[in-house]
Amino acid sequence: MKKIKVFTNGLIKENPVLVLVLGTCPTLAMSVSVINAIAMGLAATAVLICSNAVISLLRKVIPDTVRIPCYIVVIAGFVTLVQMLMEAYLPDLYDMLGVYLALIVVNCIILGRAEMFANKHNVFESALDGLGMGFGFTLALLLMATVREVLGNASFAGMSIGFLQDYKIPILTAPPGGFLVFGCMIALVAYLTRGKAPIKKSFDCEGCPSAAFCRKEGKACGTAETEAK
């Protein structure tokens, strides 16, 4: 049951895009068309599953002081791997995704899940979390792309929708339209998940990623010594 929850959390309750508001840049850029959205979502999902699994596997080996560089190396390695495979076997899709494929390296969802989940859980749970978060990301992208492509371009996955041709809303395919749809979707998900979504941590000691270090060094957060650092 717990395993299923790990997977389903990423779909709606902790959706990385619409609830945690991570990975906004690729979401806005790649939600212009449904095909781009699915391709981007699946590429990010593959990287998420693999990086989460490897980081979880190495969590007891990686020292705290170099954990972020280690995560970045692992994530960048998987992204480059996906890039090579996609350029070799899916060149049209590779061209479509353009620079955003390489930018998966700095996608906050992946680094976020490595830091928040993979380095605290076992390999299977981490891979499952990656799968759930990846599907959540793909789902959010797909929903946004559907709205933007259908209403903005009167087409779905490149197929023209005849009766909508005279009622296009071109701004939806432009960046302002992306923000507009994004905002509406966040509002809708907030309404649907009211009371169930995770409460965002405040910017206090508990919300700080270095809190554990401070405690180890015997320093209290917020003291002059800590702040001077």
């Binding site: 080996v61 990686i62 280690c70 190396v73 390695g77």
Partner: peptide, 15 residues
């Protein structure tokens, strides 16, 4: 240093 270097080398070899 050893762990970071080892991870870099493994990733490079895989690529």
């Amino acid at each position: 240093v050893i762990v970071l270097t080892a991870i870099c080398l493994i990733v490079t070899a895989l690529l």
